[in-house]
């Protein structure tokens, strides 16, 4: 029978609504940037060394790997999913990249091999979510464990070294004083922005996350969109692996990338992307990743103990999710 809950409110004041909508849109765009600035000021006041070219460069480098992982995570979370396996993929891709870099004739293939492995694992995740219709949490939780095991298997559970790594410049070099890591991270953010905001696929990702049923009825090939977002997340994890190993000249299947997925998820959520999908932006993730790096760096700088660092970071993440809820409640679902 009739469903009156969907009944229209007659004669809404459109001017007022638009004003509110604008304010909300501004809130969303600016997002957590004020938090970032306030944190920077607090750390500067407390340590006196925080805002310096040298330290900010360190912060940017510390943020860069997480930023790349978080960019991939943004695609997945926008589509309404989650990818818990990025840290493990980073470990496996690191192992492959280092192993290939040690084989004389094909060492130039190290970078593509690492990224390709990430892409393949991401596509496996995506296939299970998109075509087998398994819950993303379960699929990537399984991958978190299985891929970690695979990473250890690759190096027979040993650390692989390459003191003369071809691509070490990525981890240590710079152009015009800007570290390569920072340039890559920013390039990944720009690429993500372009895909999400300037392509058909990007609109489709937002649509699937916003309302999967409606997306299907609008003719969107939902499974392909889901496959794509997990593939991106996997490939970006591969890029993260190249960045990480370029600094370390080494890879270890057991230790590398441990709990990186948590920092990546935290960056996305801090950036205001809604956990239920469909709402959020890559610039939010950019700021979110910076906040996490600033927190880590600043807390060390002002001499907070390791234990308290964990507690404070955790509480900041919970606070951000609470803010996310609050924002969703405020948005206009008539």
């Amino acid at each position: 029978m009739s469903d009156k809950s969907g009944t229209a409110v007659i004669g809404e004041d459109t001017a007022k609504t638009s004003h509110r909508a604008k304010l909300q849109s501004v809130m969303r765009t600016v997002g957590m940037a004020p938090v970032l600035i306030i944190l920077a000021i607090i750390f500067q006041l407390l340590s006196d060394r925080f805002i310096s070219v040298q330290n900010l460069s360190i912060v940017a480098q510390q943020a860069s790997v997480n930023m790349v992982l978080a960019a991939g995570m943004t695609f997945v979370i926008l589509s309404g999913g989650i990818d818990l396996s990025v840290g493990s993929i980073l470990a496996a891709s690191s192992m492959v990249a280092l192993i290939v870099s040690n084989i004389p004739d094909i060492s130039f293939l190290a970078i593509p091999a690492g990224i390709l492995l990430g892409l393949i694992i991401g596509m496996l995740n995506g296939s299970l979510v998109a075509f087998v219709r398994l819950p993303p949490f379960i699929v990537t939780l399984g991958a978190l464990t299985a891929v970690r095991g695979f990473a250890r298997l690759l190096g027979s559970d040993q650390t692989v070294f390459n003191p003369s790594l071809d691509y070490a410049v990525i981890g240590n070099g710079d152009i015009f004083g800007i570290p390569w890591l920072v340039i890559i991270a920013f390039a990944v953010i720009l690429l993500s922005w372009f895909i999400l905001r300037r392509t058909v696929l990007g609109v489709h990702i937002y649509s699937v996350g916003g309302n999967e049923n409606a997306a299907r009825l609008a003719g969107i090939k939902v499974p392909l969109v889901l496959l794509f977002v997990y593939a991106v997340s996997g490939a970006f994890s591969g890029i993260g692996a190249i960045m990480q190993t370029a600094r370390l000249y080494a890879a270890n299947g057991l230790q590398l990338g441990q709990s990186y997925e948590l920092d990546a998820i935290a960056a996305v959520i801090l950036g205001g992307t809604s956990f239920v999908g469909g709402i959020g932006s890559i610039w939010g993730t950019f700021v979110g990743a910076l906040i996490i790096a600033v927190l880590s760096n600043g807390l060390v700088l002002i001499g907070i103990s390791d234990i308290w660092q964990f507690i404070i970071k955790g509480l900041v993440i919970i606070g951000a999710v609470a803010l996310d809820r609050y924002r969703l409640a405020g948005s206009a679902h008539t």
Binding site: R198, T199, V200, L201, G202, V203, Y206, S207, G210, N211, N213, A214, A215, L217, A218, G219, I220, G278, I279, S331, A332, H333
Partner: peptide, 28 residues
Amino acid sequence: QGLFLDMSVQDNINLAVIGRDSKAGGVL
């Protein structure tokens, strides 16, 4: 089943034709 309530009027109207309208490489 129909609308994307958190997306703009413009995106909602165009959703079924953005593919047709797009430039090379699926650029909007």
